[in-house]
Amino acid sequence: MRETFALVGFFEILMVLFMQWEIYTKKIITTFSISSYIIALFLFYLGIVQNSPYVIALSLISAFVRGFFIPWYMKRRIVRDHWREREIKPVISTAMSIVISLLIVVFAYVLYRITFYNSIHLVEGSIPMALLLQGAFLIISRRNAFIQLIGYMTMENALFLFEGYLFPGLPFIVEAGIVLDLIGIIAIAGVVVRMMKNSSVEMNESDELRG
């Protein structure tokens, strides 16, 4: 199991690094969808091994909402407006994103070793931590609402990977998964779509939102 977790974690980190460096929104969405499917598959396997219906339910939610529904919905919106496929001006340049995202992986490992490792004693626990920080960096470093939402859901994926592997049996985790995904759905259905109607998916600085 440890080897499988490490392998899944390795692929997840590779994929999130790709997302950090990529500027085409569609490719980022596809990568995120694949990473969600991989996590869902791992959770499903974990649920079977541990005989935990909670973890199996979580894997099915992950596959449906984050693997299929949200990426599908985002892509459908992008197809309608081709010119929005590429984020022209990211907050942090691509070159700088590459450097920072690599440093985040190292930082997550060091942070994990000096804090949680003392109690958890599993070195691969640093993988979800790296994914969490990468998700946060994706939110900070981009203006595109779709990519910010993917950053948020990357954090969510990391959390479920962390919980499923290290702390199985958390009683309310399915409810938590549903509510977190609802936020994603509401964000996309209620906010992003309307923003697109108002001509821009980019988050703008407004005078009314300063100070």
Binding site: I139, M195, N198, M203, L209
Partner: peptide
Amino acid sequence: TSIEATWRYII
């Protein structure tokens, strides 16, 4: 601006 504020809130 209200939609932008909502977005910030959610994220």
